[in-house]
Design a protein around this nucleic acid. Structure first.
Lengths: 125, 125
DNA sequence: TCATATATATGTCAATGACATATATAAAGG
DNA sequence: CCTTTATATATGTCATTGACATATATATGA
């Protein structure tokens, strides 16, 4: 089975990977509330990353975003469990959220155009 | 400059690649009318592939789709210019169009959810 | 003490896309 | 006739990305 919600279906095609979609999602979550990677893995479910996002993806993207100055972090040694790195968005990160949202708008338009054209060919009216 | 139409903007983030989006677009075009690669490169503009799609992408995807039985082709030696390969969609290709359209619906939902949440944070009301 | 939950990090491989380049044919213009 | 351009297909190479596996360490609870 593939997909979720109303669109769950037996799948014969490859899953679209939503490439790079994880980055704006992580940034938006961090904008709403500073968090550490382990939390993000879970809250990314809200954006459709089923079963929680892959740890490798999350941590590597966090480090990449930090190298680019989009987020910054500090170690939290206090509290329960092993030390965690608390991430916050920087102003540059917020800029990235804005420009990503424009791309996402574009993509919705393109995908919507595909669907419209798809339905012109296949809808049974 | 990045993007097109209403959403054209000065870009500071990486271009989303619309990974695999080219395949359903090619299949839908071929469903509407059998064509050869060179034509597709041009008509993919309608789906937002600016300046026409990359020849490498188009031809490699055509060969891949043919290997998977989603399209079939025959050489056209007649007519003007060098020999061209005329591609048609197979029933398996049509199945792929349908399941891709479900994925695309999912993606629109996910992207729409991101936008909604983005606007909750940033719209200036 | 042993298993489990929390937390971060890296290794490896395949899929994908971007860009460059190779090839051949035909038409058009000088 | 020769050169340029348009048509047409195909491959080479490299970086990015994602999927999956694995390594590591700390605290908690049974």
């Amino acid at each position: 089975m593939c997909g979720h919600g109303r669109n769950k279906h037996a799948c014969e095609c490859q899953k679209p990977r939503m490439e790079r979609f994880i980055q704006p999602c992580m940034l938006l979550l961090l904008y709403e509330k500073p968090a550490h990677g382990y939390e993000l893995m879970d809250s990314l479910k809200e954006f459709g990353f089923e079963d929680g996002a892959d740890p490798g993806l999350v941590y590597r993207n966090l480090r990449k975003l930090e190298k680019e100055g989009r987020v910054e972090s500090e170690w939290e040694t206090k509290g329960a469990g092993p030390a965690k790195r608390l991430y916050k968005v920087t102003p540059e990160g917020i800029d990235l959220i804005h420009s990503c949202s424009l791309h996402i708008r574009n993509n919705i338009e393109r995908l919507g155009y595909f669907l419209k054209r798809y339905e012109q060919n296949f809808s049974k009216d």
